[in-house]
């Protein structure tokens, strides 16, 4: 009874195999997965560990290939429809489907770890250079990374935060390089890349949350005073706290804007490229000439879009860092003067 559903779902999917469904394909690439597709093969995936806790509180760890093609393992299967479509589901004793606590190393989590390792390697290569060759100018790759560090550190962090720059620079530089590498790795189509990381709202949410925490935990007294008792005519804040309400709202809109901006930009880029490639398969029914023509156009357009996305990868990492710096700087106000800038900015 428990396994009847996934099997029937697999049959349904098998029946539709020959007709191309662009929406499904695009979303499959945009969303997370339990395995990592190998290039040129839709069937073979790199198995990744699935870590789930069932309703009894027991942890189950197994490789994702046991769930391929609608198989079930230990009572867990990948839902083919319903609210948990594409996610691991289980069936409890009463026969109800439920979503277990899922801490699987999915495609996105592995891509995250790879991005973090690459990021650490990049940064430590610069640190290592300084340790070894002190004041010699770095060459080649190290020089490029150092240029980015210098660009962000002196161009954004130091010019905005001034004396407080060294205190916040580690966080800001880390998010810049981490976002940049996640963006760029997402553009590489095959294995170590290809995961739509920064186009996933969970990832951008955590990043925005970190900025939110740093802004508000390290905010000065003046910053909180500006929020709850701003420098406006009395009737705007008492008895009805109109301005304080707007200011408090602003605390949450700022990181929310950060989250949505990065997410929408990167997701949009991936979606456009996938749509352009899908065009080839949509037009495949119309004959060889049309397909040939569409292929050339689509490939040219997606190449163009990839180039733009490379630029966007950098711009979005830069913008995220710049706005985080700005929000931190606005929460570091000391006098009355800067308090006004805060309002203008909104």
């Amino acid at each position: 009874m428990a396994f009847a559903f996934p099997l029937s779902a697999a049959e349904k999917a098998g029946g539709e195999e020959n007709t191309f469904n662009p929406k499904e394909t695009i979303f499959e690439h945009l969303l997370d997965g339990y395995g990592w597709e190998l290039p040129f093969s839709h069937e073979h995936r790199i198995p990744l560990p699935v870590i789930v806790r069932d309703y009894k509180g027991d942890w189950n760890v197994f490789m994702s290939h046991r769930l391929d093609h609608g198989q079930a393992y230990n009572g867990f299967y990948i839902a083919q429809e319903g609210p948990n479509k594409g996610k691991v589901e289980g069936v409890d004793d009463a026969g109800n489907r439920y979503r277990p606590l899922d801490l699987s190393i999915t495609k996105n989590v592995l891509a995250l770890i790879i991005a973090a390792l690459v990021c650490a390697w990049c940064v430590f290569s610069v640190a290592h250079w300084y340790k070894k060759r002190r004041f010699k100018a770095p060459k080649k790759g190290v020089g490029a990374i150092e240029f980015l560090i210098e660009f962000v550190y002196t161009g954004v962090i130091k010019s905005t935060l001034g004396d407080k720059a060294p205190r916040f620079a580690p966080y800001l530089l880390t998010i810049f390089f981490f976002i940049l590498l996640m963006n760029l790795l997402g553009l590489i189509v095959i294995f170590p890349g290809g995961a739509n990381l920064t186009g996933n709202i969970a990832v951008t949410m955590v990043l925005a949350l970190c900025t939110f925490i740093i802004v508000n935990v390290r905010g000065t007294k003046e910053y909180w005073k500006e929020i709850f008792w701003p420098d406006v005519p009395l009737w705007l804040k008492f008895p009805l706290p109109i301005m304080p309400l707007i200011e408090v709202f602003g605390i949450f809109t700022k990181p929310a804007a950060l989250m949505v901006r990065l997410f929408a930009n990167m997701m949009g880029g991936h979606m456009i490229i996938l749509s352009l490639i899908s065009l080839i398969f949509i037009f495949s029914a119309l004959g060889a000439v049309v397909v040939g023509f569409t292929t050339v156009i689509s490939v040219l357009f997606s190449l163009f879009m990839l180039m733009i996305d490379t630029l966007v990868s950098f711009i979005q990492a830069y913008v995220f860092t710049m706005l985080s710096t700005l929000f931190i700087a606005l929460a570091q106000v000391e006098g009355h003067h800067e308090g006004k800038v805060e309002k203008v900015e909104k």
């Binding site: 899922d102 801490l103 650490a120 940064v123 640190a127 530089l173 981490f178 969970a202 949410m205």
Partner: peptide, 28 residues
């Protein structure tokens, strides 16, 4: 947002930040 990804993202980011903030950035 998927809870598992949020959890792992948080863990990975905090570890990356802690390591870089301790051993790399101040030095650089």
């Amino acid at each position: 947002p998927e809870f598992g990804l949020v959890f792992w993202m948080f863990v990975v980011f905090i570890i990356l930040f802690a390591i870089l903030a301790k051993y790399a950035w101040p030095y650089i």
